[in-house]
Amino acid sequence: MMNLRNSALILAGLATCIAVSCAGPQSADKSAKDSSTATLSIDTASFDTTINGKSVKLYKLVNKNGASVSITNYGGRIVSLLVPDKSGKLTDVVLGYQNLKDYQKKGEPYFGAIIGRYGNRIANGKFTVAGKAYQADLNDGVNTLHGGSKGFFGQVFTASQNGQTLSLEYTSADGEGGYPGTVSVTVVYTLTDDNALEIAYTAKTDKETILNLTNHAYFNLNGAGDSTILDNVLQINADAFTPVNKTLIPTGELKPVKGTPFDFLTAKTIGKDINVTDEQLANGKGYDHNFVLNKSNATTPVATVSSTKTGIAMEVYTSEPGLQFYSGNFLTGQTHDGKGGAAYPLRSAFCLETQHFPDSPNQPTFPSTLLKPGQTYQTKTTYKFLVK
């Protein structure tokens, strides 16, 4: 938990290196069963650099409650997200690194990044647009994941901050990553005074293309650095999900969740069914599946998560038809280079990535991800935090 001195330092911006304790120190020899949360330490100066001639910085949005989000324009990454717990103390609920160089490492798990041009997987990286075949970069075995090796997660966005809003812009050149069309993208982050992080995406293209944008924040409502999310309680408003093969490509089926471990219509802990014998759980090494969201309105969350430890709850609102629930199955905890020296072990975070469905360009029954000249791509997702 954050003490008063560190809280004051953060809110006043009096230090370059920000240090807060989320729930006590965690030494490198702690086992995965130790749920104490590591000390967060972000060297803001390390984000102040130039990449490929473009300026990179760490931007901070703070609301009237003292809640804050820190975002770098390198990949549009959410580096920290501090929200009040049941005691009113600020807790960081997203995983990440404390300096820029770690975000540039090959194989890092897309912590907090804007994902594009295509969120999730495309089978064999192949797709057809306007009768022409295209080949995207292969970066996930035989498939393309999150746009390929030249995805938005590694690009520098042009940033403009106005109070509690950060606007990020990027132009993806025709052919970048194997995708057609020059695509101009704007992503706007807004931290509201009711502790909601809004992410609004807008894009246009000069040639027919496919586009599927999302954010890859890794959440743990016990606090970033806590060893597990299996005790976080999750509800997803989805009657069906899209089963996958062993390379995590959808089979094309929409399978009812009823009677399966994928039934989150009634809230349950993430860990309740994660280890049961199930072909789909085996394919994903846990949950790594797209949920087909039931139709909802702007006032109805598509998912809700809560922590009994901190009392923090998160509601997810989106205009997207799908939600990728990922239970952190590929986190290893082998190194301690997370914020405050934290190791992020298996299933110490979850992702709720709002999206169109994986491999939609090759699945004619899935919602289309085609974007044409003259059209405007628009979608919005909100992560709202409250205390239960």
Rank of each mutant, 00 (worst) to 15 (best):
K30R: 10
D337W: 00
T192K: 09
E108H: 13
L213I: 14
I115S: 05
A173R: 09
P373I: 05
I18H: 07
S319F: 02
I274W: 04
G76M: 04
L323I: 11
G286E: 13
G311N: 06
N65R: 06
D359P: 06
Y170A: 04
A196N: 11
A133L: 02
L90G: 08
A200K: 15
N63M: 11
G328Y: 09
K150N: 15
D278C: 13
K105I: 02
Q334A: 01
V302T: 05
A343S: 15
L346N: 14
G340N: 01
G338R: 08
I274K: 10
A203H: 02
A224T: 02
L100H: 10
N3W: 01
P109Q: 09
K89E: 05
G151K: 12
A343E: 01
D206Y: 09
K388Y: 07
D85Y: 03
S80K: 02
A23Q: 11
V62W: 00
V292I: 09
T228C: 05
A15Y: 10
D34F: 00
A298F: 06
N124C: 08
Y103I: 14
Y74F: 15
A38S: 13
K86N: 12
S296F: 01
Y383I: 02
Y317I: 00
V387R: 00
F47H: 11
I115D: 06
T247E: 12
G286R: 14
T379S: 13
V93I: 08
K126T: 08
S41P: 00
K132A: 10
N212K: 07
L346G: 05
T192I: 04
Y170C: 13
N195D: 14
E176R: 05
S35N: 10
G340C: 03
N275F: 15
A313N: 03
T190H: 04
V79F: 01
H289I: 07
V302M: 04
M314E: 00
A342C: 09
G76F: 01
Q155S: 13
L386P: 00
N162G: 04
L248E: 09
N120A: 11
E108K: 12
S27V: 08
L9S: 15
T354K: 08
Y97F: 15
P25F: 06
Q363E: 14
T308E: 00
G88L: 07
A267D: 06
K285V: 04
S327V: 04
S296Q: 14
N329C: 07
E315G: 14
A8L: 14
T205Q: 04
E320H: 07
D34T: 03
M2W: 13
